[in-house]
Amino acid sequence: MRNLTGLLFAGGLGFMLLSIAINLDFGTPTMLIGGAIQSNALQKTGATNIVTSVVLGYRGIDTLGELSILFAAAASAGLILGRRHTTAGTQTAGGFVLRHGGSMLFPLLMTIGFYIIFHGHLSPGGGFQGGVILAAAFFLPLLARPGAQLHHGTLSLIEGLAGASFVLIGLIALQQGKAFLQPMLIQDTLGVLLSAGTLPLLYLAVGLKVGAELASLLSHLAQTESDA
């Protein structure tokens, strides 16, 4: 009975919302703020990737909040799982190919990760995407060699400093009489690596933080996995 009500509820809700949503203009959005942002994003932030200028410029404090959420989630997971460190002894170690393949992928993943972070204001990509790749680079050895451990001290150092430098870059702008998180040092050139002033620095902070955060989350989960 309860299952049936649940199904009816979910289906009914979906149908009701659909009948409302279908009246929306699809494919022709009003672009009220989107259009205005498109026309002045380059001159305000110096980034050719407009999504980047929204993420780090126009909605910079959202990104700060989001980094804080990741930080809070990693810290909470650390609080919950971090009491007892058990190495995953029951898992069998990977074979020769897996272990050495993992080691060889590490530098490649690092390169790609940093490339994506540094070009986030020019092309698709950015701190989040690059950060995830960095986390994967560190997590790969953990999968290939179940006994290996990430150094949590270093990770928390990176995540703390990266987050702090994001806030500090914002505060420097405030100190110079501008608004909090206002982009600085913009040069009016299109498509050059250094064109967007502080934006790539912010994205570097984001990338490092996301990478460290995810790596520490994953290693917490991996280390407690087997003693359930």
Binding site: L32, I33, A36, I37, K44, G57, Y58, G60, I61, A173, K178, A179, F180, L181, Q182, P183
Partner: peptide, 8 residues
Amino acid sequence: IGGFAPPL
């Protein structure tokens, strides 16, 4: 915040 006038 960020010096961008409000609706943007």
